[in-house]
């Protein structure tokens, strides 16, 4: 992990095993499949539900500041706690949680490299017992949306030479063959992609065991498609969660200075009246 631009944002499964009981460390599991935590999780880990706890459940938006403060406080997390996130599907929603914690200014938040799959495959201890940490007071910083791009700005900037759009969905979603992957309910009126976007699937950043590819492999992956560090890079997917993992890779592992996650993503763009759309590879 030493070759990454910011190696400190990743911890190994070994590290988690050694530090999961440290007083200043809180391990949190966030899964796509919200039932996975109940099967068995890292002992001491809290479980967060992305559908109910990491978003505004009324209007479509990220979690509100006061709700985040309550969630973190109830999870025994203080402002100076090291939060280690992990989850299923190569840390898909763990990265979504990390993206939000960063926007609310949490200082030390990391991902467990290899995610839940690696922990299970290595035969490490798990428990079905829910962690019950003592509540603490948590004060979030004011929301800083530097890491986020919204529709109005993207409509103005998507076709600039200085912008590099990374569509991290599957090839069939990108080309417009399908509206959404099998089994996923959120959809759109029109298939395709934002004109000029490059299709670099989120999962291509990971190895078979769920760990991230090396710095050189990641650099080559993105640069070969013209996504370079001098560009204003925007990652998007369907609802902004897969792309938060690609945002993490580009920002922290490769160290690109200007990377933002478009969480409106295809379920916003593909429903807009009059928005430009491309189909095909």
């Amino acid at each position: 992990m030493a070759d990454y631009a910011n190696p400190g944002v990743l911890v190994s499964t070994d590290w988690v095993d050694q530090h999961r009981n440290d007083a200043n460390v809180r391990v949190v599991e966030v899964d796509v499949d919200t039932k996975a935590y109940e099967e068995g999780h890292v002992p001491g880990a809290i479980g967060w539900n992305w559908q109910t706890q990491l978003c505004d459940t009324v209007q479509r938006d990220i979690i509100k500041k006061e709700d985040l403060e309550q969630l973190l406080g109830n999870s025994g997390i203080s402002d100076d706690t090291t939060v280690v996130l992990y989850g299923d599907n190569n840390n898909w929603f763990a990265a979504w949680a990390l993206w939000q914690l960063k926007m609310y200014g949490h200082g030390d938040v990391r991902l467990m490299n290899g995610s839940r799959a690696k922990w299970l495959a290595e035969g490490r201890e798990v428990t079905t017992e829910k962690a019950t940490p003592g509540a603490t007071a948590y004060t979030a910083k004011a929301l800083d949306e530097t890491e986020r791009i919204k529709l109005a700005e993207l409509l103005q900037s998507h076709n600039l030479d200085s912008t590099a759009l990374v569509d991290v969905r599957s090839p069939d979603e990108f080309t417009g063959k399908i509206l959404a992957p099998p089994g996923l309910p959120e959809t759109c009126q029109r298939p395709g992609h934002i004109p000029g976007a490059q299709n670099i699937g989120w999962g291509t950043a990971c190895n078979e065991d769920g760990t991230f590819k090396t710095f050189e492999e990641l650099k080559s992956l993105y640069e070969s498609k013209g996504v370079t560090a001098d560009k204003n890079v925007v990652a998007y997917c369907r609802i902004g969660e897969r792309s938060s993992l690609s945002w993490f890779v580009l920002k922290y592992l490769l160290g690109y200075p200007n990377v933002r996650n478009y969480d409106g993503s295809w379920t916003e763009w593909g429903n807009l009246v009059g928005a430009p759309i491309e189909r095909g590879a």
Partner: peptide, 13 residues
């Protein structure tokens, strides 16, 4: 669990 290959979301457990 059965997940679609891409993006890997579980749809049967």
């Amino acid at each position: 669990h059965v997940a679609n290959e891409d993006p890997g979301a579980v749809f049967v457990r």
